[in-house]
């Protein structure tokens, strides 16, 4: 019975299956992105108020109602007079050409606005994630299953930092290290020294969070028989932790990191606000306030894109860390 089925099963070469899997992933990613763009597009139309009025008020700096005649040129310029469905279709087809539309307020292509601001945000996000990992892993290695006081200190620190609001951390760091101690600049723009405090603002709560899940895993792993085996070979405690236990305990933190990367990017606005740092978060807040639909949609799309890429990387990271996951 087995042999009859074997040839058919083997007739699909492995590269075909790999390619099929890759295509499926790319298609899924594209669907996620279009869906994200569509939802933002329609969600913003649901917000009460007329877009042309908002644009005119933005330009004149006043808050008033306009006559239909006054609104007509704006409606024509941005295509608001056309049926909703054709506005939407234009938008979606534009996406595939790399065109995110034109900002209502800045009168520049959205791609250009994002392009100007995305760099500092990505630097901030990536640096925060890396820092959070270093802090979480370091604290785990040093404090899990040590003397009772040390372990308690580690888990208290994690619980505390995980529950602190980033905004508050930012202000405290600013006051202590920039205003009082003057170690770092108050407004650092995008310089390396100026990036330290914004990075810590985002990294500290995330480190607490990652540390908590890693600690749980780490504790369980240290009770495993293979850890005992390693010790019976004469390995030191530090080496056992680094070479054996760590790798087994990072999978949950990797899962969280995919989510964290996207959340950091959209949450970066807090750090950017406190430290007066340029970035996509600032742009997003302004755009939401001024009902700048193309800019908001564009940024949501970028954040969604980062989520999608982050999750692909996470999938890959799983199989690197734990090859057993490759089979499933």
């Amino acid at each position: 019975m087995t042999t009859a089925v074997l040839p058919r099963a083997l007739s699909v070469p492995s590269w075909v299956r790999t390619a099929r899997g890759a295509l499926l992933k790319i298609a899924t990613a594209a669907i996620v992105l279009v869906a994200a763009a569509s939802i933002t597009f329609f969600a913003q139309l649901l917000v009460p108020g007329d877009r042309a009025t908002a644009i005119l008020n933005q330009q004149t700096g006043r808050a008033q109602q306009y006559t239909t005649a006054e609104l007509a040129p704006v409606n024509a310029q941005f295509g608001f007079d056309r049926p909703l469905i054709s506005q939407y279709l234009d938008y979606v087809t534009g996406l595939f050409r790399g065109d995110l539309g034109t900002s209502y307020t800045q009168h520049r292509p959205v791609t250009e606005i994002i392009g100007d601001q995305i760099g500092p945000s990505l630097v901030l996000t990536a640096a925060a994630l890396v820092t959070a990992w270093v802090l979480a892993v370091g604290i785990t290695l040093l404090t899990v299953k040590r003397r009772r006081a040390v372990s308690a200190l580690g888990s208290t620190w994690e619980a505390l930092t995980a529950s602190l609001p980033p905004y508050w951390i930012g202000v405290v760091l600013l006051v202590v290290f920039a205003v009082q101690l003057r170690i770092f600049p108050v407004i650092g723009e995008t310089s390396a020294r100026g990036t330290v405090l914004p990075v810590l603002t985002l990294a500290i709560p995330l480190a607490g969070f990652l540390g908590q899940v890693t600690r749980d895993e780490f504790e369980k792993v240290l009770d495993q028989p293979f850890i005992t085996t390693a010790r019976t070979r004469g390995m030191s405690d530090t080496a056992v932790r680094l070479r054996h236990a760590l790798r087994h305990s990072v999978v949950p933190a990797i899962t969280l990191s995919g989510w964290a990367l996207g959340a950091l990017l959209s949450g970066a606005v807090i750090a950017e606000n406190v430290f007066g740092r340029p970035g996509i978060g600032q742009v997003l807040v302004t755009a939401v306030n001024t009902r700048d639909v193309p800019t908001v949609s564009g940024i949501v799309l970028v954040v969604a894109g980062v989520y999608v890429i982050a999750n692909l990387v996470v999938d890959l990271a799983y199989t690197v860390v734990d090859p057993r996951l490759r089979a499933s």
Binding site: P225, F226, T228, T232, R233, H244
Partner: peptide, 24 residues
């Protein structure tokens, strides 16, 4: 003790599925 473990005294645990590091 670390100098003795593995060198002078070898130790074999039961059930190698959990006694060997699966990721290495």
């Amino acid at each position: 003790w670390r100098a003795i473990r593995g060198r002078d005294i070898g130790f074999v645990l039961q059930d190698a599925l959990v006694s060997l590091d699966q990721l290495r």
